[in-house]
Amino acid sequence: MSAGTRILVAIAGGFTLWALVFTAVYAGHATGCEIGWGLASGPGGIAPLRMVLVLIPLAGLGLTLAGLWLLRRGAGLAPRLATTAQLLTAAAAVATVYNFTFVAILPLCA
């Protein structure tokens, strides 16, 4: 990985994951409701769509936290960039929690 790419990944990686989760949840929700996943009841009476919508952010959060762990020693970046990348990745993790917690709670398709 070139030094430039490394900077790009370190800085934009966390929020790129947030953006992917966002897109997946929004599109998945709309699609799931249209194809009926929001009605069917799966294990424990939970709609399959609900499980998908909860698992996607959890996966994103896991990857973001993994990224934060990789960045703990700066990942070979210049110190100021390393701090910036750590701040951004931590912020992305917080944003993921803040942004997607309620998909576990709100009514699905109405």
Binding site: A12, F15, T16, W18, A19, F22, V25, Y26, H29, A30, C33, A92, A95, N99, F100, F102, V103, L106, P107, L108, C109, A110
Partner: peptide, 23 residues
């Protein structure tokens, strides 16, 4: 990044599901 996750707040009155709006 966040600014790309806001666009539907111009469309709150189009009748989308509340969960989408909350996102």
């Amino acid at each position: 990044f966040l600014s790309f996750g806001l666009w539907v707040h111009h469309m709150y009155t189009t009748g989308l599901p509340h969960l989408s709006l909350a996102l």
